[in-house]
Design a protein around this nucleic acid. Structure first.
Lengths: 215, 215
DNA sequence: GAGACGAGTTGAACACGTTCAACTGAACGC
DNA sequence: GCGTTCAGTTGAACGTGTTCAACTCGTCTC
């Protein structure tokens, strides 16, 4: 029964989150709707945040499937980046009304739903693998100096785009889409230009900074 | 008495936030310590978030004073940017242990403490004025094409640095300081290079993107 | 002066996330 | 059979942010 109960609580919570958002979905409502006691939900999920993390995992899988399809078509860095980022925006589409609530949960450093948390490692690795693929499979090839660091930087860029999306009140999140349409070719261009002698120094500085900051 | 009470609640709250952090400071504790009823605190401040916003205002003023001193010394863009950003890191220094808690409050789109909120407009304008000053007073002068948009972009960069700072667990936030030391000259360099024909197109793209996204 | 008004204040009450001592019942050893 | 164990489950209880009907008391109106 335990596994069934856990799955039932999970699916009930996700449904209510989708229907009502984060704050309006109470743990009591989840438990009641699932036909179990309040405390039982806590036996299976350590906190409300952990249930949100399950929702993220769902959205992430959806996004990954769409991104894989995009990457299968080949293309240059800018095209691939644009496709993957737009796949992300599409996957998040339905949740925009509650985006602010969910980001609040995700951003708290200790939270299970934080993109940097141990609990999110499955999501994170799935997502970072996409960006590694994106970089490695691009034609023309990305300069080898950048190839190691770029995937993680692009993953961080996606988090930035998502943050922007949260604050984007325009209909259909048009401004976020505009941002993606603009930033993808821009990054593609800068990566291409990074080979040039003038910019070579700046590119090295960026890489040195990334490594220094990481340590 | 009303103004006195309001000031008392304010200062008590700020003291407790500094001593115990956000979550551990309850509205009941603030009221009790200030010698008023719980409901009275709510008469003067609409929510706990609004009290946090008061704390931000304090920190912001401190940062502004330090930044003004830095800017009074002249210098080029990179030097000035470095000084202002480090002044920010210094001003936030004592709050790092609770940084995660406070960012949670600040990031929620509707929150009074959000850097984009109406309630924060005083903080925001104070802070953005610094960056305008930073750009306008730099020698050699910043290319005129960039002069309009750069202040706001740098202000956003500071928000990014602050976000990084929240997640920076290194002692004394050394990694954040490393980031600032690295990113200031990098931005200075890119701004200088933006005059070059090769980069002129990219620079125009950035500006066009900023304007498109804003609209 | 009597009465009305209203800013300031009170503390009990509400719904929330979370905790926990107690209960249930299937599985196991003997 | 009987006792023991323990994963699974229960719902009352705790402390939280917030609300609100009620009270106080100085000030204004006539």
């Amino acid at each position: 029964m335990s596994d069934d109960t856990k799955a039932l609580v999970r699916s009930t919570a996700l449904r209510l989150f989708r229907e009502r958002g984060y704050a309006a979905t109470t743990m009591r409502a989840i438990a009641q709707e699932a036909g179990v006691a309040t405390g039982n939900a806590y036996y299976h999920f350590a906190s409300k945040d952990h249930l949100v993390q399950e929702l993220y995992l769902d959205v992430n899988r959806e996004q990954t499937v769409a991104a894989r399809a995009v990457l299968a078509q080949g293309g240059d860095l800018a095209t691939r980046l644009r496709g993957v980022l737009l796949a992300g925006v599409d996957a998040f589409e339905g949740y925009h009304a509650f985006g602010g609530e969910f980001i609040t949960v995700a951003i708290r450093p200790g939270s299970a739903a934080s993109p940097f948390s141990a609990e999110s490692s499955e999501s994170r690795q799935m997502s970072q693998a996409i960006f590694r693929d994106l970089v490695d499979g691009a034609t023309p090839a990305v300069p080898s100096v950048l190839r190691d660091e770029l995937p993680e930087l692009l993953w961080l860029a996606q988090l930035g785009v998502t943050l922007f999306w949260v604050y984007d009140g325009s209909p259909g999140q048009r401004r976020t889409r505009t941002l993606v349409e603009g930033i993808a070719p821009l990054i593609g261009r800068l990566v291409r230009l990074s080979r040039l002698p003038v910019l070579r120094g700046a590119a090295d500085d960026v890489l040195a900074l990334v490594r220094a900051v990481r340590a």
